[in-house]
């Protein structure tokens, strides 16, 4: 995929060094270190309030970090607005609550950013959008409004919308936890396909089945720290850490 970004290629997709984040006086991230290679699929899990969302949101500056360094696709995140914009163009985000634009059709949701941010002509943006809607298996809903779709369909539109920017990195923040159980699979299937095509992904999720099928590495966070990181087989089979085992027994429901 060709992209006209100012962001350099080569090097890891994301490098986080000694990341600190405070909300007022509460310390949400404590000296977090993480490196994600291009093409790598990372699953992040951990108990509520452990800082998973915060870490993800720091990667494209939805939250501003207070200490340490974040380098995304070779560009360091600092107060340089050009850097922030450049990184946001190359990083797609899928939110827990979809956050589709309710006043636009599905197709418009998918074409607006490519047209006004990447300055693509409408025809090209629409062709791309239809291709990705096909990929997430809802091409027939293009002219509907988000409010007319089911949760699972909305989340797949949200994935297509992010992909239409042709990002080099995708971030997912609990993409299935607002969905009814019968809709989770259709979203996970799309994500697995995406993973198998080599997209660099960082997913916060408690879907351990997805971690087994698609992840290269599973990261466990607790209290604002990365407590453990391991390939999925190792992570599930032989976790050394007491907190991890406790957490796993909860999410796996035994």
């Amino acid at each position: 995929m060709i992209s006209d970004n100012s962001v350099k290629s080569g090097g890891p997709a994301v490098r986080i060094e000694n990341l600190d984040k405070y909300y007022g006086t509460s310390h949400a991230l404590r000296k977090v270190n993480l490196s994600v290679e291009r093409g790598e699929r990372i699953v992040v899990c951990g108990p509520s309030g452990s800082g998973k969302s915060t870490m993800i949101r720091c990667i494209n500056r939805l939250e501003q970090h207070n200490g340490g360094r974040i380098t995304v696709l070779g560009t360091e995140l600092n107060d340089d607005v050009g850097n922030i914009d450049g990184i946001r163009r190359e990083v797609g985000v899928v939110f827990q609550h979809f956050n589709l634009f309710p006043h636009m059709t599905v197709l418009e949701n998918c074409t607006i950013a490519p047209m006004i941010v990447r300055k693509r002509p409408r025809a090209e943006a629409e062709a791309t959008a239809r291709r990705y809607l096909e990929k997430v298996r809802i091409p027939e809903q293009a002219m509907k409004f988000p409010g007319q779709l089911s949760g699972g369909q909305q989340q797949r539109v949200a994935i297509a919308r992010a992909l239409c920017m042709q990002p080099q990195l995708m971030l997912f923040d609990e993409p299935t936890s607002a969905l009814d159980p019968e809709m989770i699979a259709e979203v996970l299937d799309v994500m697995v396909t995406l993973a198998s095509e080599g997209m660099t992904m960082i997913c916060v999720t408690h879907e351990m089945g997805f971690a087994r099928r698609a992840a290269d590495r599973v990261i466990f966070m607790d209290g604002g720290e990365i407590v453990e990181e391991a390939p999925p087989e190792e992570f599930f089979a032989a976790s050394r850490n007491e907190r991890t085992r406790q957490f796993l027994s909860q999410v796996l429901g035994h």
């Binding site: 914009d85 946001r88 163009r89 990083v91 985000v93 634009f101 950013a113 006004i116 992010a162």
Partner: peptide, 20 residues
């Protein structure tokens, strides 16, 4: 979430205000 989604797509301040 609306503004966040627009930010995450790389829209500028004025684009977020006027379109979203």
């Amino acid at each position: 979430g609306q503004e966040e989604a627009a930010m995450a797509l790389g829209m500028s301040y004025w684009q977020r205000i006027s379109r979203i």
